[in-house]
Nucleic acid binder design. Sequence first.
DNA 1: GCAAACTATCGAAACGTTTCGAAATCCACC
DNA 2: GGTGGATTTCGAAACGTTTCGATAGTTTGC
Lengths: 335, 335
Amino acid sequence: MANIHDVARVAGVSISTVSYALSGKRSIAESTRRRIDDAVLQLDYRPNAGARMLKGTRTNILALSAPLHAGTYAPAHMTFVLSIVTAARKYDYDVLLLTQDEATSGLRRVARSSLVDGIILLDVSTVDVRTDLVRELGLPAAVVGIPRDTTGLTCVDLDFEEAGAMSIRRLAGQGHTAIGLLGQAPLVYERGSNFPARFRDGFLAEAERLGVTVGFVPSDEDAVGVRNAFDALSASVPDMTAVVLNSNESVQVALLELLRTRGVSVPGDLSLISACSSFDTTHFDPPLDVIPLPADLSCTRAIELTMAQLAGDVDPHVELIEPSYVELGSTANRT
Amino acid sequence: MANIHDVARVAGVSISTVSYALSGKRSIAESTRRRIDDAVLQLDYRPNAGARMLKGTRTNILALSAPLHAGTYAPAHMTFVLSIVTAARKYDYDVLLLTQDEATSGLRRVARSSLVDGIILLDVSTVDVRTDLVRELGLPAAVVGIPRDTTGLTCVDLDFEEAGAMSIRRLAGQGHTAIGLLGQAPLVYERGSNFPARFRDGFLAEAERLGVTVGFVPSDEDAVGVRNAFDALSASVPDMTAVVLNSNESVQVALLELLRTRGVSVPGDLSLISACSSFDTTHFDPPLDVIPLPADLSCTRAIELTMAQLAGDVDPHVELIEPSYVELGSTANRT
DNA sequence: GCAAACTATCGAAACGTTTCGAAATCCACC
DNA sequence: GGTGGATTTCGAAACGTTTCGATAGTTTGC
């Protein structure tokens, strides 16, 4: 494989000139630069990554810690991973994927061996060993999600509490006074995954503030689980006229199917909001109003913040992304 | 960060002794080794990855090209990615994730800069530019999936044709003579994703051989699509008594739901086989007989073959993994 | 008791960059 | 024509390993 010496020889200059021409850190005569560019092209030269990592202070690699817990919704998870990789590439960074057991131990390994310049943590739970590790390692890092203790951490996430409140405000504004919240699988809440809890808390707090009657029931993914959850919800909220769905795609599909068989019309009999969903609700029948979970925004911001830390001009802090509301006709004024 | 010089100083030996003690490539006195181990522990020393890559011939990093096409079933995809990472770690390899546009261009970039020792290609289609790139780059590589032209390539995959044949044999052996195949989304076949086609071909060929009447219909994922597909299948196969499902989880769930509403009992009225499924069918109602798609087997083997190529003792070839049949009571003898 | 054969350790080169400081070249100006 | 200041280029050190060849020190064989 061609190295910088080859390029220098072909271009008839010294290696330092080649290096400066490629990095642009010193001015190079136009004619020289052209000869170097030609040589690079001709030899299909690409700087050796190892040498670069060794000498330079940057490896241009980020570690992505992405464990896949039981109960994690794979498509959403995948979307986040993809968004991270895509965002990182914008800064010429590659992503080293650490999963499962390696999500923690691998973090220490790659950090201590100076393989990576920074760390991205996905799917953090309320209390997460990885956050301690990040603090200990002292590398630039961004956490997608908000753990309980955020000291010294840079965190980004959708403002789930605000999203919960937003869904209540929307429905209350339409005159609904009995609103249900169909949540994730019970397992998800037990595990300490924090965003469903944050959503629920925002939902309940705003309901209390506005004096709206609400109920909350977690739901399993299969059709039976959804039916049971919905019936439990109906029972706990008398005369329920609206339901907020903070659950994954299959639950929402199953619920729509259930309502259809029962002849419940949306939004005629029941108003529905799909909250914090990473999937497309426009092709549902009917399409559901949605407060999107913008994986790309969170991930782009996480990468930006990591890059800013690398440049040294940002202090640890928490950034919440403002939720938005997309109207698709699945809610109606209470008549 | 501590380097090998620090370890040498603390242990009171030269750096080459430290290196040999750690690599085990030359014998080291027991007492010296102990002192070195102590120093390593005390300093929490880990060899600098860049220096290692530069000097050694190995980077201990693999590139994983995992594009996510429209229509790709995310959970299955995720399972493969996870399996690759897990298998790679067994050989002390880390995985660099290349997705989307970078799945191809990034491959060249990381290979030419000697960032990776080898390449894993996921989700290859019948004709895939990435296979040409792999041939060009000449790095050790393994392809999960079987492209049309396999010359010079090392490929691993489930024997989908045999799986198709196996499903026919099972049902024919139970006396079924009119069997339907409910396939993936039409898009998947059009894109040239090859495993669904291979399954279908094996299915059709064996049916022909055994003189069984069959029909094939692709199916969209939503409830309506599944209903339409099933009805089309029923229409094209008169007196159909068995259906093979080579589709993703939501289609299978939707079909079971459909059959339930229609009062069709499984396997009483209709025998069902879930073919090449990466998900768990035991919690379905009823549980479905399954020919599993063993992501871990394919991926483990892909990694093994890449490692063998690194060691220089294997020639490019295709390996098909024998399918297995798991009986869970969703098929019955035709009465 | 001495050469031969090990064993344990060391020194130094090499891997391919980046970057600092200095040298060389050029131009303008007095 | 010499001085000063830019501009462009070069040489060499450094990054942290691995590994080759060499050197002590220790056995072994006769």
